[in-house]
């Protein structure tokens, strides 16, 4: 029963974004161009300092393209089609969602998984194929690594969603969330490793980033993909993602309840 509900929501989430075709094409183009630019930057950097952060050039380039592929699915930049929930809370439209006999968090998550699947299939895979044609990338050979990578990406999407959902809930308490929203985007871009792999960060900064959930968005999936041993070595990384996903979703569920009980839905 509910499985069909959430499958339905996810498929609608998918189709909803599939209607904006020219935006998708423009996005693929942008991701590809940036992938190329970043690749040349990394090549220059790794030629200068070989084995920086333990990566060879091929690994650094793979990292660059995987990071590009993940930008939209995990919603690194916020805004636009991955916009958080604050606007619906602010305008009072959230009232409609709360009047439904389905938990808000689960409904939103299902919709976002649909959206992310569409983003991954288009803006994730297409630039990646171009990248693989233009540059020598380091692909793992074992199937189990690929399966764990797929799992890791899914968890990254869930964590990305949970962060935006929490930001959206914030609008119940503070009406203007644009400040926190910018902070979140900056953290998501830098502390995830998407701008530069976390493995290249200097000591303290790197350690701080390792305590935060953001590395689960990009660095961790890349680590899972780039590990040379097959399979089990990356299980702790998956475990870490699971931990963050449950923590953040749990927090989301608790705060949703609190918001509805103590706070006010806007608008007449």
């Amino acid at each position: 029963m509910s499985a069909s509900l959430y499958a339905g929501l996810a498929s609608r989430g998918f189709r909803r974004y599939a209607t904006y075709r020219s935006a998708t094409l423009a996005g693929i183009f942008t991701n590809t161009v940036f992938g190329v630019i970043i690749s040349y930057t990394y090549i220059a950097l790794w030629v200068e300092r070989p084995q920086l952060g333990g990566y060879g050039i091929a690994q650094a380039l793979t990292f660059a393209w995987v990071a590009q592929a993940l930008i939209m699915p995990v919603g690194l930049f916020g805004g636009g089609i991955v916009a958080d929930y604050s606007e619906r809370v602010r305008s009072g439209a959230v009232a409609t969602d709360l009047q439904r006999p389905a938990p808000l968090l689960a409904v939103r998550l299902a919709e976002d998984l649909g959206r992310a699947a569409y983003a991954l299939l288009t803006r994730g895979i297409a630039p990646m194929l171009v990248g693989a044609l233009l540059f020598p990338l380091a692909w793992p050979s074992s199937v189990s690594t690929w399966l764990l990578f797929a799992l890791s990406i899914t968890l990254a999407v869930v964590i990305g969603f949970a962060l935006r959902y929490l930001l959206g809930l914030l609008a119940f308490w503070i009406i203007d969330t644009s400040g926190p929203a910018s902070v979140l985007v900056v953290l998501q871009i830098f502390a995830s490793g998407s701008a530069l792999p976390l493995v290249t960060f200097p000591g303290v900064l790197r350690r701080i980033c390792e305590l935060l959930p953001f590395r689960c968005l990009v660095q961790v999936p890349c680590d899972v993909l780039l590990r040379e041993d097959t399979g089990t070595g990356s299980l702790p990384l998956i475990g870490l993602q699971l931990l963050w996903a449950t923590t953040l979703l749990g927090l989301g569920a608790v705060l949703t309840r609190a918001a509805v009980r103590t706070v006010v839905v806007q608008g007449g």
Partner: peptide, 30 residues
């Protein structure tokens, strides 16, 4: 057990064909 209509806002999915909104509601309300 209740139905709610707010004149100023919609309970439908903005980007989806009307039929899809109804279909989603069918599942939400079982």
């Amino acid at each position: 057990r209740i139905g709610v209509v707010f004149g100023q806002r919609t309970g439908l999915w903005w980007d989806l064909p009307l039929r899809d909104s109804f279909e989603l509601l069918r599942r939400i309300y079982r």
